[in-house]
Nucleic acid binder design. Structure first.
Length: 871
RNA sequence: GGUCGCUUAGCUCAGCUGGUUAGAGCGCUGCGUUCACAUCGCAGAGGUCGGUGGUUCGAGUCCACUAGCGACCACCA
């Protein structure tokens, strides 16, 4: 059948309808795969993108990687599930909507009220979610859309409530007054890792509290000194040892303070005066000291960043105003000793960049150091660390295991309540002093639900099992349904920057909920940087929209460019040139197929991949051996998560061996239809996980079934070491033939000699000789021989019904040059090898196999050199 | 301050547990190409693997020190 294919592959025309075809087939859903019950599972849960913005090129890399793993396993008989979803990203989303609202109407969320504001947020969520899903599909992602989840949908809300209640009942979740990171702008607490630090200039004030206080202290925030209850010095500091344990009552700018002198090793002697005022309510470190020493805590600043009641003239002022006033007083009363500028790390909100106010506040916490009954008294922290140490989680690259462990062991109690509107409601109700924790509002009047929401990571931490039907699929301590079939998942693939933020939390949450580590392997990809090696960001404007790239080069080209040249855990640069290069490759693959399909018969094209065609000539044996070798390498590399190398091997075969040599041979040597069909099918199957669209499109040219579920055969090609070694001979002949078609400008090492068998067709032979001459085939010598076997080192072409065998023939000049160069190389190697083998220590200590190998190599080289010299 | 990573061809990067003559893509140079593909082909130039020292029969690979760049975590009042 003659196939009509376009000269150039056009992804824009194919991709959407192919995706449709896949979706309609139902094969994204593992329930629709034809599998026996004992088929192994392969599950990846997609890290849910934030619905705050559309996808960027980093997401594309993630999708390409995961789809590669998923498709590879689906084509290898696994019950393969890739489950999609999006993340509500509580604070981030609320902020985006707030900003937009303010920009367009000048209103704040408080102007609208909770209900109206939340409806605006949901409007936004629905819009961006649609964008994200369509972008995800554009990448060719074979996600099971029937299981689509959202971290804040009804099912996930149910799961979150259940989790909260369980953890509360087990004493893991508690409510407590602790110092928290407070953003006065967002009006919310932030977890430790939502705080960012920016270096900036700050003023360090050195002063005495009062005239009768014996020494000076230093601070950048004089206004918080209103809440000081102690002064800390290093216990080793001789200057202050005599004061340790003493108490002073001072009048600090009009406020009475009681100060105890305490010793703490964290105080650095050479910073400032070596003494610091302890403000337990407004500094993390100070709070810790106060806990250790049993100090009183005095709150100075409120949730709006203003000075609280009972601070006289300061009350009601903002922190900055109060600071100015205190500084002025210190100056005029002569207590100020020094004001100097120094560089300081200011903590700020990662969303709105406002300075963080550490505050004492009543919040909900997950106690990571509390003994958990269901863990036989182990704490969450200990349990998670034990899982890592017991090698139940493997990290790739493994160095990230160390980060995980050290982060885990330094983890402090996790504050999970947030004072924002958009997010999971806390399933707690209050009535006066009464507290009720449960699924829904309790009986009776006057109950008020906690107005806070949960940290977004609380629900993302549950992602692997909440998406698989927990808690409904967890009955009496046993998994059922999807949870049983697909949990734990095989791979978690995500960026390393999110390792602590997300991965560690998933481990803790999953251990608590179902006593299972949520994934066997954590594959961490690097960050995609711009072409100059800088992080892509909205503010820098150096981001790349994957859709723009896809529209020009196609999704396959983008995928392949992201999959190659990158290694796990390492950042890589994005460049359009690379995508273009991959587009060229895809077009090459298209044209390889076009060439092969152009004269393939119906029955040949339908032959089965499992039955290998019989090679007839040298070239056939060679290409089948190369295919065998390549396919094995590809499998090995893919199983090893070595995706880039797998693609490299495969393109080397496809382009440099199949296209450049074997297809050239096929132009002159006929009768290769069966092998060509087999080769084409093989590379389509092998390439499919990398570049699904183009392979599926080509496949559809000669098959009715879908490539997406085509099972990989046990073996591709056939093993034949001899044939692989004869590669250079084929090259020589082909260069000769190919150049013969032009004015012969690139010369092969050998010229080509034609051999015609005199098989009682002498009349034909004469015309045949004419034809060859007219063809200008670069054939330098023609010989007519009696009929015998086809020479082993030949390629057969058929002209005018008579077979002509092409052999490499020697061109004196060229051959001399080549031999000379080759001899030099050989001599160099021989001297190197014999030197090495003469070394007794090498022979004694190197592995025997290596020594033997080198010896045989040396012998072979000497033999070759001898032959060469004889000529 | 702590932890970790990177430094290999003009550019972007591979190089697995130390073992043939260190690789690829792009770029560059020369030659070629109506007959699958100019989104093409062939050939070639180009590297003392950041530096110093060590371990070893053998080091791009392991160790120590050192220089430059980068990331993450913590954080000083």
């Amino acid at each position: 059948m003659k196939k009509e294919m376009e000269k150039v592959y056009n992804p824009q025309e194919c991709e959407d309808h192919i995706y449709q075809k896949w979706e309609n087939s139902g094969y994204f859903n593992p329930d629709n795969l034809a599998l026996s019950d004992d088929a192994p599972n392969y599950t990846i849960i997609l890290p849910p993108p934030n619905i705050t913005a559309k996808l960027h090129i980093g997401h594309s890399a993630m999708l390409a990687l995961e789809d590669l793993m998923i498709r590879y396993h689906r084509m290898n008989g696994y019950r393969t599930l890739w489950l999609p979803g999006t993340d509500h990203a509580a604070i981030a989303t609320q902020n985006v909507v707030e900003k937009e609202l303010f920009k367009s109407t000048g209103k704040t969320r408080h102007d609208l009220g909770k209900e109206v504001f939340l409806s605006k947020v949901w409007e936004f969520v629905n819009k961006t979610q649609a964008t994200i899903l369509s972008q995800t599909k554009k990448m060719g992602s074979s996600l099971d859309w029937s299981r689509l989840a959202f971290t804040l949908d009804e099912e996930r809300q149910q799961a979150v409530r259940k989790m909260f209640i369980d953890m509360y009942q087990d004493g893991v979740i508690y409510r407590g007054e602790r110092i928290v990171n407070w953003c006065p702008r967002c009006h919310s607490t932030l977890s430790d890792d939502e705080v960012e630090y920016h270096e900036q200039e700050a003023k360090l004030y050195t002063f005495k509290y009062s005239v009768d206080f014996p020494f000076a202290i230093s601070t950048t925030r004089p206004e918080t000194k209103l809440g000081d209850t102690a002064v800390a010095v290093n216990p080793k500091d001789e200057r202050y040892q005599k004061y340790l344990g003493k108490e002073f009552s001072v009048d600090f700018c009009g406020q009475k303070l009681k100060l105890k002198i305490i010793g703490d090793r964290k105080v650095e002697m050479d910073f400032g005066t070596g003494a610091l005022g302890v403000t337990p309510a407004h500094s993390m470190v100070d709070w810790q000291m106060a806990q250790d020493q049993g100090l009183e805590t005095v709150k100075v600043i409120d949730e709006n960043g203003k000075i609280k009641e009972n601070f006289g003239e300061y009350s009601g002022l903002s922190a900055l105003e109060a600071r100015a006033k205190i500084v002025e007083k210190l100056q005029t009363s002569g207590l100020m000793i020094e004001e100097k500028i120094f560089s300081n790390n200011l903590s700020s909100c990662y969303r709105c960049d406002s300075p963080i106010e550490p505050l004492l506040s009543k919040q909900w916490f997950i106690g990571v150091d509390r003994p958990v009954a269901r863990f036989d008294g182990q704490t969450l922290k200990e349990k998670a660390i034990a899982a890592y140490k017991g090698k139940d989680i493997e990290f790739l690259p493994d160095r990230f295991g160390k980060s995980f462990e050290s982060w885990m062991s330094n983890l402090r109690d996790w504050c999970i309540s947030r004072q924002i509107w958009f997010g999971h409601e806390i399933p707690v109700w209050y009535r006066g002093e009464e507290i009720f924790v449960g699924e829904s509002v309790p009986q009776g009047d006057g109950w008020l639900q906690d107005g806070d929401t949960l940290d977004t990571w609380f629900s993302s931490g549950m992602w692997t099992f909440s998406t698989l039907g927990w808690p409904n699929n967890f009955q009496e301590g046993k998994k059922i349904g999807d949870l049983k079939r697909f949990h734990p998942t095989q791979v978690l693939e995500t960026g390393y920057e999110i390792l602590t933020l997300w991965v560690s939390r998933m481990v803790m949450m999953s251990l608590f909920a179902i006593n299972e580590i949520p994934f066997e392997k954590v594959y961490l990809h690097g960050t995609i940087l711009d072409s100059k090696g800088k992080k892509m960001s909205k503010s820098k404007g150096n981001g790349v929209d994957p859709i723009d790239v896809i529209n020009i080069y196609g999704a396959d080209a983008l995928r392949l460019s992201l999959l190659t040249g990158s290694t796990p855990g390492n950042d890589s640069r994005y460049s359009e040139e690379k995508v273009a290069a991959k587009r060229n490759f895809i077009n090459k693959l298209w044209n390889i197929s076009r060439f092969i399909l152009s004269d393939l018969s119906e029955e040949t094209s339908s032959c089965d991949l499992d039955s290998l065609p019989e090679p007839k000539t040298l070239a056939d044996r060679w290409i089948m051996a190369e295919l065998h070798q390549t396919a094995n390498l590809v499998r090995e590399k893919l199983d090893d998560f070595n995706f880039s190398l797998a693609a490299e091997e495969l393109s080397n075969f496809t382009w440099n061996k199949l296209a450049d040599w074997y297809l050239e041979i096929a132009k002159v040597e006929k009768g290769k239809e069966e092998i060509l069909a087999h080769l084409l099918k093989s590379i389509l199957v092998l390439w499919h996980p990398f570049i699904p669209y183009v392979t599926e499109e080509i496949w559809s040219q000669f098959n009715n079934d879908l490539l997406i579920v085509k099972q990989w055969p046990g073996t591709f090609g056939r093993k034949d070491d001899e044939a692989v070694r004869d590669y250079s001979l084929i090259q020589d002949i082909i260069i000769g033939v190919r150049n013969g078609r032009s004015e012969n400008r690139v010369e092969p090492a050998r010229k080509v000699k034609a051999l015609i068998f005199n098989n009682n067709h002498s009349s034909l032979i004469n015309s045949q000789l004419e034809i060859i001459k007219n063809l200008k085939t670069g054939i330098s010598e023609i010989e007519v021989a009696e009929k015998t076997e086809q020479p082993k080192e030949s390629i057969a072409i058929i002209v005018g019904g008579v077979e002509i065998y092409l052999l490499g023939a020697v061109d004196q000049e060229k051959e001399k040059m080549r031999l000379h160069k080759e001899r030099e190389n050989l001599e160099k190697m021989i001297s190197l090898l014999s030197g090495r083998l003469a070394n007794e220590e090498f022979v004694a200590k190197a592995p025997a196999a290596l020594v033997e190998k080198e010896q045989t190599r040396l012998l072979a080289m000497r033999e070759e050199l001898k032959k060469m010299l004889n000529h």
